[in-house]
């Protein structure tokens, strides 16, 4: 895949109010059917509304061009201004991170955090089915996550991601909201620990094999680094998969009327597919 040379100028995006409306409707459906849930519904709705407005107002994407990563261009006409009001002097990512952390920190009920993530999942731009390929897999997650990384002409990083799990999709959506369009340095500077408060369903800060946040972020960072080096005319790092990491015994085994595990990718081999994807670029 080449670095994206097309700058998408489409300004089609969900306005925050319509998004919130959809979510509120779904949410109401669930609420009425499940009165037994243990939280204060009224409070939740209000919080939800306020925070959603705050957090999604910068969220722009372009479902009209699903195969191209959407790029922000400073020279775009004023109509796209709405998408990037926070983009000032490289503070973008840090600000967004702070907003996101505040947003999730304010949600005491685990259920609310799950809902918030599902909300983010819902606004993640649709992902091209054809990009759900092995090379794009982020290995190491408990769910399937696909990630595409490109660098645009302005040297900004562009990300697209998808998952078969709604919650993982929510994680990806948050990461993309923060890092899409960021400078490579900003991408590398983000630390998984910063995202602790956004975590749903994970109490361990330590690198867990099932920590989607961490796996996706690390993958974003590695691929960013590789693209930067490629730009600079250097060989991307880790071009060769370490032979010891590939377990392939196809030749010494026979399938017996069943699928045979020709490649057993152990969880530790996280970066295997990433390297493969680098090689195929």
């Amino acid at each position: 895949m080449n670095s994206s040379s097309t700058i998408t100028t489409s300004t089609h995006f969900h306005s925050s109010s319509s998004c919130t409306k959809i979510l509120r409707k779904r949410y109401d459906n669930y609420e009425t059917r499940h009165s037994a849930l243990k939280f204060n519904a009224e409070n939740e709705k209000n919080k939800f509304l306020i925070l959603s407005l705050k957090s999604i107002k910068n969220y722009g994407f372009s479902p009209k061009s699903p195969s191209k990563l959407h790029a922000r261009n400073p020279s775009l006409p004023a109509e796209v201004e709405f998408e990037r009001p926070l983009e000032t002097d490289g503070l973008v990512v840090a600000d967004k991170l702070q907003l996101l952390v505040l947003e999730f920190k304010s949600l005491d009920e685990p259920l609310d955090r799950v809902k918030r993530l599902l909300h983010y999942a819902a606004i993640l731009p649709p992902y091209d089915e054809s990009a759900r390929v092995a090379e794009n897999r982020v290995v190491g997650c408990a769910t399937q996550v696909w990630l595409e990384v490109e660098m645009d002409d302005l040297g900004r990083m562009r990300f697209r991601a998808d998952s078969d799990s709604e919650i993982s999709k929510g994680f990806c959506s948050c990461l993309i909201w923060m890092l899409d369009g960021a400078k490579p340095e900003e991408v590398s500077e983000m630390r998984a620990e910063d995202l602790e408060h956004v975590n749903v369903g994970l109490y361990v800060k330590a690198n867990s094999r099932v920590n989607t946040w961490q796996n996706v972020l690390i993958s974003m960072q590695k691929r960013t680094k590789a693209l930067v080096m490629e730009r600079g005319g250097k060989n991307p790092p880790l071009l060769e998969p370490l032979p010891s990491l590939i377990v392939n015994h196809g030749s010494s085994a026979e399938a017996q009327g069943c699928l045979f595990p020709t490649r057993l990718v152990l969880p530790e081999l996280q970066t295997f597919d990433e390297r493969q994807s680098l090689m195929s670029k």
Binding site: V114, T143, S165, I167, V210
Partner: peptide, 10 residues
């Protein structure tokens, strides 16, 4: 995994 997460959290 979504099922397991929700069962745990809720």
């Amino acid at each position: 995994t979504d099922i397991a997460t929700f069962l745990d959290q809720q």
